[in-house]
Each structure stands twice: as C-alpha cells, then as structure tokens.
Design a protein around this nucleic acid. Structure first.
Length: 539
DNA sequence: ATGGTAGATAGC
DNA sequence: GAATGCTATCTACCAT
C-alpha cells in the first residue's frame, strides 16, 4: 500500500485509512453505489423489483475493504464517531442491494471479491426499498473507483477533475470518502430518529461477517446421496405434482454440494438491509430456504455439527403474535402471554364459545391457522385456501367468516389496530403513508400505493427482526468465551456451533440472551425462546 | 444470445 | 369494503 499524502499531522481521514489497512481482508471490500451509470446493464435500472440504486461491488485487489456510500455534502459525524470508534471493526457504511448487483457483475464476467455484508444509512432514510429518491446522486468517488477497476469504461481525466485528486491508492480514496459520506447522513438520521436503527445495524455487522465466514458444517456426501435419490425417483415418477417438486428440488438444491461446499462447510451470504422489513435477505445459496423435513426428509440432517461440537438450534415461540400484541397494542393478547397461556386455545375458545379448558386438539389446530392467518389481514376466502393447504382443514366460507369474527372478538386490540390501518388506507389514496417498527425503521407508501396488508405486516416483521438482530449481536459476544459461534440465522431461528462439553451451558445461554435481547425491543410481552442441542439441523 | 416478466415453490 | 406479509430461485415464455 503506497503511503501517500502523509502530512506531519495526519488528518482524520488519513488516520481512518490507516486503521482500515490494518483490518483482516475479509472484513472489508468496496461497495460502490451506482444508480444512473450509463454502462450498467439495463435490468439494474429498469426492473421494478430491483428498483433501487444498483450497487456495484468491485474487487479492490490487496485492499482492506471499505464500504462506500454515495451521498450529498458534508455534515456532522459526531454521533457516529463514538459508535464506530468503539468497534474493533471498521466503520461499515454500505450499499443496499449489492447482492443483486454481484449477480449482474458475474454475468458480465467480473468476479468481485465478496464483501461481508451491508449497511446503509441511505437505505434507512429511503424508508423502504420501493423508493430511493434520497439515494440518487452518483458520487464522483464511485466514478473514480469504477475507473480504477474498469479502465476504459469511464474517463479517468474526468474523474480526476471532479475529485481534484489523482487517486492511485484506492484504499485512501475509499477512506477519504467514508467520513464525508457518513457526515452527510448523520444529521438526517438524527432528524429522522433513525439513529437507533443505524446503531443496531452497525453493531450487527461483525456478527454477520463472522457468521458468513464460518459457514455451516455439511455432510456433503450425504447431501449428494439425497440428490441422487431424487434423480432416481425422477426417472420413474409419474405423478405430475411429484415431478414438479422433484425438479424444483433438483434444480434448486442439486448443485449445492458442488457449488457451495468447501472443506466440509457451506457458506452463504447474508444481507441485513436488503429488505423492506429489516429481515435478512440470504442468497448464493439461500440457506434460509433449505427444505424442511416435511418437504424433503433428510436434507436438514445433512447440516451438522462437526466432530467434537454440537449445534444449538434456537427459535422464538410465536414471535409475531407477541410482537403484534405489543405493537397493536392488544391488552387481551398481552395478558394471554403474561399468564403463560396458549393464544391458540384462547382463539379456539372464542370460536366455540366454550372455556379454554374444553378445547380439543382439532379446535386448537384450527385456531392456530386462524391466529396466523388473520393476524395480518387475510380475508375469509383466502383463509379457506390457507387452512386447507397449510393445516389440512376444510372449511366452507361461512365457517371461515365465523372464524375471522371469532379472532377479532378474542383480541379486540388487534381488531382496533386493523381498523386504524384501514383508515390509513383511505388517506393513502392521496397522500404518502409511513409505518414504522419499534426502533423506528420506516416503510413509506407513496400516495396511491398503500398496501393494507404490508402496513400491518412490515412493522411486526420488522420489529421482530430488530429484536433478533439485537440477539445476534449479544450472541456473537456471549458465545465467544465458550468457544461457540453462530453459523446461521433464519428470521427467528439461530444456529450456533459449540464445543460438545459446553453444549448445555451454551443452550441455556442462547435461550437467555435471545429472550433478553428481544425483550429490550418488545418489553410489554414476555418473550420465550426455545433452544435444543443437536448433532444436525434435523435433530 | 441476452434481458426481462410471471408464476410456481422453497423458507420464515 | 376487502386485502396475510417478507424473501430467493427456478422454469417457461416473450422481447430485443
């Protein structure tokens, strides 16, 4: 790394650049946000599904990584300086949607060095993935970095004149950009009360990077045998539905052992800020959609604890119902959880107008479908279909309507919440509507584009995601002394690998950390996490 | 050939 | 008045 522009008194930016150079390579890389770059493939700009500023992640050979944001002019960085300085890791400022762009790059024959994960103040400020207006300007620095790695595509002379410098050292360039860009976002994040979300995401980054780097141990030969059994069955299968299913399994998962397993572990890519809700996106491979035992028996059993270790598999109990009880708010549902009662029995009792003690197993099963289905605004018609496919329950339409009424009768706070969102629906015809999570992450619906169901769901899903991310941060720190580490997260499920002689200790620790972390975000309802010790994901 | 869309299906 | 939501990946199909 050429030392350059070394002054007798290093500037803030130079100090940061020096710190960045100390970091282990996987921690950083360049994320370059692009929006209207003329050389981008068309789909990066026009696909509504990808209607976010396209992000380009480019390899910067030999460099420590830096996450760059495009952004407006300078402002005050102070709230974040303390935050970032407290980390062993660098300031991670990031670009959303980089993972899609990685694919775009790959199709163009470019092989960017993989970056850890993403965080962007701009994403938060843009209030949901559908509108990134605030994110628009293409920074001169982005052009500079493009010129650096894709010579010929952009006029370097233009870059130099724009920047007023001759960048020979991409790391220094990146660092130069970092502080100003963060400065630019800081006051707006403060104004918009997004500092807590931003801090959460900053703290989360090391946990995600380690999880991505660690990967999950996998019994690749066993996986390959299952794939082979699908192939054999496909040859003789006759039932069309079965053929469709087998083809899906074969095409989606069949090449995983070959494409993604190395040294007995499978590594995925996690994107904490790629979704409207604040949940993770996961890709290449998407380990958040590994077939369940129900769908394809044996697959999850291939994801294992290595010799001498155990998996701790933990998830939250009815987390969305609990979060909804908190946010709605619904005193009745809150009380059900406080009394350690079963919300499905409560609904079943409302359905039958009988006491909870008289609820049968079948009634409880129906009530479970009712609770999960109607919570986010499903209609009676759609509920019939849902109950049939997900729970094997056949209902006629009047029965589905009665179930819906019983649900709202059981939980008046939920009913009032739905009515309030319904009112927003009318206003949303002609004005922008914004909904938010507990920490203040926002999703904005432009006038005329309000979505009732999404307005119900996103704050709940997003609040649960915030509690989960809080837990991931604490778990990352809490497991290390035991020699344990997180290996995967699936929305409300956390997998850790721990030494077998400390498995029980770890199990209890994981349970406690998850419950306490979520409770900081969702304080009005008791939170229950359940963790088990296993030798494979199926166990 | 490549880019783009809709629909189905995998997860939560 | 009614309305589950959030994703990734694959296939089939259409357009350039």
């Amino acid at each position: 790394m050429p030392a350059q522009r070394r002054l007798s008194q290093p500037t803030e930016v130079q100090t940061l650049a020096a710190e960045l150079r100390q970091l282990r390579p996987p921690a950083i890389a360049l994320f370059l946000a692009l929006d209207d770059a003329p050389d981008l493939p068309v789909n990066a700009r026009t696909d509504p599904h990808r209607a976010r500023p396209a992000a380009l992640a480019l390899a910067a050979p030999g460099l420590p990584a830096v996450h760059l944001l495009q952004g407006p002019a300078l402002a005050d960085l102070s709230p974040f300086q303390a935050l970032l300085g407290a980390h062993t890791a660098p300031p991670y400022v990031v670009v959303h949607d980089a993972h899609r762009t990685l694919g775009v790059l790959a199709r163009r024959g470019l092989t960017p060095r993989r970056v850890g994960c993403t965080l962007t103040a701009a994403t938060l400020l843009a209030e949901g993935a559908d509108d990134r207006r605030d994110d628009r300007p293409l920074s001169a620095l982005v052009r500079a970095e493009l010129a650096h790695d894709l010579p010929g595509e952009i006029d370097r002379g233009l870059i130099r004149s724009e920047l007023g410098v001759n960048h020979q050292d991409a790391a220094a360039a990146a660092a130069d950009a970092l502080l100003p860009l963060m400065r630019a976002y800081a006051p707006r994040l403060r104004e918009r009360h997004l500092v807590r979300v931003f801090e959460l995401e900053c703290e989360l980054v090391p946990a995600v990077l380690d999880m991505e780097a660690t990967g999950l141990a996998v019994d690749a030969p066993a996986f390959a045998r299952i794939v082979e059994s699908w192939r054999r069955e496909r040859l003789t299968a006759e039932e069309p539905a079965r053929i469709t299913r087998l083809d899906k399994l074969l095409t989606t998962y069949g090449n995983w052992p070959r494409d993604y397993v190395s040294a007995g572990r499978i590594r995925t890519h996690l994107y904490p800020l790629a979704t409207d809700s604040g949940r993770f996106a996961c890709a290449d491979p998407n380990l958040q959609q590994v077939p369940s035992e129900h769908t394809a028996p044996g697959v999850r059993a291939c994801f294992v604890a290595p010799h001498g270790a155990r998996l701790i598999i933990a998830d939250y109990a009815q987390i969305e119902l609990r979060v909804a009880a908190h946010l709605a708010p619904c005193p009745v549902l809150r009380q059900v959880f406080r009394d350690r009662r079963d919300p499905h029995r409560t609904t079943a009792a409302a359905l039958t107008r009988a006491p909870e003690s008289a609820v049968t197993d079948h009634q409880r099963k129906l009530a479970k479908a009712v609770n999960f289905g109607f919570l986010f605004g499903m209609g009676a018609r759609r509920f019939r279909e849902y109950a049939a496919t997900s729970y094997g329950l056949d209902l006629d339409l009047p029965a589905a309507e009665r179930a819906r009424e019983a649900f709202f009768r059981a939980f008046p706070g939920i009913a009032a919440w739905h009515r309030r969102i319904g009112d927003l629906s009318r206003r949303g015809e002609r004005e922008d509507i914004t909904v938010q999570t507990a920490l203040g992450r926002r999703k904005r619906f432009p006038a005329g584009a309000f979505a009732f169901n999404a307005a119900l769901n996103i704050p709940v899903q997003g609040t649960a995601a915030e509690g989960f991310k809080r837990a991931m941060i604490d778990l990352h720190r809490g497991l290390a002394p035991l020699g344990g580490r997180g290996v995967l997260c699936v929305h409300d499920e956390y997998l850790a690998e721990v030494p077998e002689d400390r498995a029980e200790e770890a199990r209890q620790l994981v349970t406690r950390i998850m419950e306490e972390a979520m409770a900081t975000i969702v304080p009005s309802v008791p939170i229950v996490a359940e963790a088990r010790i296993a030798t494979s994901w199926a166990g």
